[in-house]
Design a protein around this nucleic acid. Structure first.
Lengths: 201, 201
DNA sequence: CCTACCGATCGGTAGG
DNA sequence: CCTACCGATCGGTAGG
């Protein structure tokens, strides 16, 4: 019970480091210091650095789900829910109280050319997220809010690009127009496939 | 003269590490080993780790320019040259012989929440690149290949998103359809602003 | 460019 | 969970 609270504090502090400095910024020693225990205490909670990294990715997914996915279940299915999800997705890490960017966006580029458990775990979480996006698009097609010949995978692919460009725009270039640019791109993308659109591809 | 050749070998080996494992993957000791000299020999060439990192970003920019920008000057101005540039941009690091991904894409997410000279240098190179993209779009407008009311910055912003999604798609998800997805997105984007397009925004 | 060295930190373990 | 410790590696320096 006390152990579980300590673990929760470790995950919270670790997620902050992960957001601020990426996986290389998370070290066993620094995290132990931040929470006020010894390094070996860390290994009592996480058997290895790899286990810690995987636990932190899961924690990031948990917090992301809490802030991005859960509030959206109240919206009507299909496009309205997708739009609400995108609203929550863009900039979620800041609204979740994290000091830096999205750990998954970072993992996409930090782990891309590495092999191992951590990469595999990040890839699984990433796939899960894309499938969620995809299911909303597919539901939009079923509900005839999106053209029946729309390519759901293409839409998801482009939405991910908009998310990444928005992330770079906000966190790296610090462009105040990032939100406007992202929504202009999103509306153009959805407009392209909208059931009301008459222009052929 | 011999020193210059050694420096060139250091830059080449360092750029490989940078591509494969990002900035955290470049260490003075490993790079010294790879080229067969001592660590202090490294400091004779680059005064500090920071200097080395900046030199590697410049080297990455040099190689990128060589493979992406220079071959494109033969194309007609405006849209044809932009399309040729995009063709060379997507996947350039592999065609340049690098073992991993694009160092600038990685820097965008590795350095975003850090401060310092390295970040500033990466930001300057990034801005230079976006300005190049922008100038091609603007030239397309001047040549009436692109609608006069097109927002060049928005186009560049979306192109960067397509590049990042393509990068994640190729290197992280290893999706063989990445090129097709990227070009579908590019053609849709350019079609949206094409001089021949009659649909309003 | 070298040898030889510095203090700090890395992930991890022994033994309790 | 702790103290105490391990070998390896980090960026960097002194002196040549």
């Amino acid at each position: 019970m006390k152990s579980q609270r300590t673990r929760a504090r470790l995950l919270e502090a670790g997620l902050h480091s992960l957001s601020a400095a990426g996986l290389p910024g998370v070290t066993v020693g620094r995290l132990a210091d931040a929470v006020g225990l010894s390094k070996s205490g860390m290994f009592a909670h996480f058997g290895s650095k790899t286990c810690l990294e995987i636990a932190l990715l899961d924690e990031a997914a948990r917090v992301a789900t809490e802030h991005v996915v859960e509030p959206v279940q109240a919206w009507p299915e299909g496009l309205p829910r997708l739009r609400a999800l995108l609203t929550n997705w863009l900039g979620w890490s800041t609204r979740a109280g994290l000091p830096g960017g999205c750990p998954f966006a970072a993992a996409l580029f930090e782990l891309d050319d590495l092999e191992g458990e951590v990469r595999d775990h990040a890839a699984a979480l990433e796939l899960h997220w894309r499938n969620l996006l995809r299911s909303l698009v597919v539901r939009g097609i079923e509900l005839e809010q999106v053209r029946p010949d729309a390519d759901a995978d293409q839409i998801v692919w482009e939405l991910c690009g908009i998310y990444l460009s928005h992330h770079a725009s906000v966190r790296f270039q610090r462009d105040p127009a990032a939100d406007d640019r992202a929504w202009a791109a999103i509306e153009a993308l959805l407009g392209r496939y909208g059931a009301d659109a008459s222009n052929s591809p």
